[in-house]
Amino acid sequence: MPTILAFAEARAGQLRKVALEAVTAARQLAGGDQVHAVLVGEGGIGAHAAALGQHGADVVHVCEHAGFARHNPEALAALLAAAANTTGARVVVLPASAHGKDVAPRVAAKLKVGLAADLTSVAFEGDAIVGRHPVNTGKVLATVTLTAKPAVVTMRPGAVPPAAQPKAGTVQALAPVGDPSASRVVTTTLVQGNTAKLDLGEAPVIVTGGRGLKAAEHFAIVEALAEAFGNAAVGATRAVTDDGWRPHSDQIGQTGRLVSPDLYIAVGVSGAIQHLAGMRNSKTIVAINKDKEAPIFKIADYGIAGDAFEVVPKLTEAVKAARAQS
């Protein structure tokens, strides 16, 4: 059985959780065979190789170059395609993150193969790679078969949680293909939000505010509820991001983020089709909305048909109390 290659995504010198997820997924595919990880960044990024070894990488190819200080999709795609060839990779696994989704199609095109994107599971079936991929805004599940060698796949963040499975993690220096500092596409600035805050794709709990909150400053009650959970991120509906109350990057819906947390709490959200498309696959859904007839209640497991400004602060207190006891 041949090698599985995983892209270990880092940002600003830090390994991202999806890097461990990609290596874990590669380990599951490889069975007893070799997993090679590719780790790129500026000088010092190689320090993260050990964590990749812990999650199942036999070999970690490290490319340290000043041109990789920020996202460099052209140089990265060239490097990954070359690594796929030199390692004889059977499958290339990338995260379906913002950077992974940017790079994976470039790698597939360089290798002249199709791509299976945003998979929630992946496995060998005979000689082919088979993955599950939600399509039509999550209303339909497709099972995708890849017959190309290598096969290129991206894994939905959170679909394969990182699992410790220590392997050697032997570091090998990897030379860049061409000069990464000479790429035509240049990332000039990276602005990180509050890095202590959980991303919508990673948070086990999401609290989302809609138009029912009436004004941007009223998001404070949503923020407070998220804070009380301690592991929650705050989302928004399109109506709210269109009005500029929250950034576009917070939008959950058909044209925004598609999320599936363990718990999704919709506050003052009517439940437009556009929004439901982004969150319908959440495990447990709670809706708090004044309008008993709001469509959000059709999809919610538990609803309170009341005033958010009265209910949410009480819920925040109750969640704090429950967490203090546990």
């Binding site: 209303k139 497709a142 099972t143 078969t145 190309a148 809706a287 497991d301 609803g303 009265e310």
Partner: peptide, 23 residues
């Protein structure tokens, strides 16, 4: 080299309930 082997509908959500109309 990438084809759809199967399409299916995800399981329907069980009907939810409204627990009350205030805090």
């Amino acid at each position: 080299t990438a084809t759809v082997a199967k399409m299916e509908l995800p399981p329907e959500r069980a009907a939810g309930r409204i627990l009350g109309e205030n805090a």
